[in-house]
Amino acid sequence: MVVKPDWLRVKAPQWERIGNVKSILQDLSLNTVCEEASCPNIGECFNAGTATFLIMGPACTRACPYCDIDFDKTPRGLDPTEPQRLAEAVRRLRLNHVVITSVNRDDLPDGGAEQFVRCLQAVRQSSPQTTVEVLIPDLCGNWQALTTLLQAQPDVLNHNTETVPRLYRRTRPQGSYERSLELLQRSRELAPWVYTKSGIMVGLGETDAEVRQVMADLRAVDCDILTIGQYLQPSQKHLGVEAFIPPDQFEQWRVAGEALGFLQVVASPLTRSSYHAGEVQRLMQRYPRRRGDGVIA
């Protein structure tokens, strides 16, 4: 058994602030990936008044052995009130930047793209100054659904590659590394103004060379933003941690990623895909793009 090191300790959260955020989420019957996926940063993010909203859930049609989200091959139907409830939460929390993600919905022909669109449009209507990041599944390779989603003009399109190709069969058996890269490449081609983003977990048995190859592959499809974080085992039934990667290795990857041309690399043991996501606003100011350019009608 690999012993968790000191650098993975997190600060005790301020429960008063967490309670306020949880109260709003419960009042509006919303799910967050912070809670459903047992994120270690929930205290920090809730204390800051932010959350990553999990739509079309809480059950997922895939049973990835690293993930703590519940599995259900026949999940509930879509809730038509969800977009407005989410938009109201964004308004109440006064969010400058919001991340909207979802479970995998392989039971839906479009993978849930239309629900993403409805949520994005509702947020834009109620909080027009809020920037919107969508963290999407692979949509089972439905590229028309991806086009529909991009036509709604998110500010950031995030899709995680999660791990290195060699570990896909064990870690992400229903996913495809090549399909994930293609999704990011098509996003760049369809909507070049959208900032593309991806993230991977480490500590599952990958090598340094494999991590660097994933970084190179992501830059080959012109991905803008990369996150790298330590995998933590949610429970004994999930995949075990093969190694705890020291902070200096994350720093080496960050430097290497910037040398490859990523606009932003966030790499640390506690980094998660939407951790400190609001910092993307500074990136958008530094590397401005005009919304809507190049979107295929």
Rank of each mutant, 00 (worst) to 15 (best):
P40F: 06
R186C: 05
D155E: 15
Q249F: 13
D72M: 11
D79A: 03
F71T: 07
E189G: 00
W7H: 14
E182W: 15
P247K: 09
A87R: 10
A277N: 02
D138F: 12
E178L: 05
I136D: 02
Q14A: 10
K237L: 14
R179I: 06
A59G: 10
R9P: 04
R219F: 01
V214Y: 05
T130W: 11
L263I: 04
A37E: 11
R170M: 12
D27V: 02
A216F: 06
T207C: 00
A209N: 02
I18T: 13
P137F: 15
V90A: 11
P288V: 06
A87K: 04
R118D: 08
S235Q: 11
E210T: 01
L108R: 06
L54G: 01
G278Y: 14
Q121V: 03
Q230K: 01
Q233C: 07
L239H: 04
L28V: 02
Q213E: 15
C119G: 10
V2D: 03
A267C: 03
Q174Y: 10
L8A: 06
W143P: 06
P165Q: 02
V132P: 11
A87M: 03
E189V: 12
T81V: 08
D293H: 14
L263N: 07
P173S: 12
E279C: 06
W253L: 02
A191M: 10
R105I: 06
R166D: 12
Q233E: 11
G111S: 10
R290H: 12
A209H: 08
Y231D: 07
A87T: 08
G19Q: 13
A122R: 09
M56Q: 02
R254E: 14
C34D: 12
H276Q: 14
G111K: 14
Q121E: 15
L95G: 01
N142C: 04
Q84Y: 09
L150E: 07
V214I: 13
K73C: 06
A63H: 15
E162T: 01
R169E: 14
S102A: 15
N104L: 06
E182C: 00
G294W: 08
S268M: 07
S102R: 03
A220M: 14
E242I: 05
G294I: 07
P75H: 07
L157D: 03
A220R: 11
S23V: 10
F71Q: 00
N142M: 05
I42H: 00
S38K: 14
I42D: 00
Q264F: 13
Q84R: 09
Q249L: 08
I200D: 03
C67Y: 04
K22F: 11
E88M: 12
S273K: 03
C39H: 00
P247F: 00
E114K: 14
D79P: 11
R290S: 12
V221Y: 01
Y287S: 10
Q84F: 01
E88Y: 02
G141M: 04
I228C: 02
L157T: 04
Q26C: 09
T207E: 08
P192W: 13
V266M: 14
G278Q: 12
L232Y: 08
R212F: 04
D70L: 13
S180G: 02
V280G: 05
S273I: 00
L270W: 06
K197F: 02
H238C: 06
E279A: 08
I245E: 11
I18M: 15
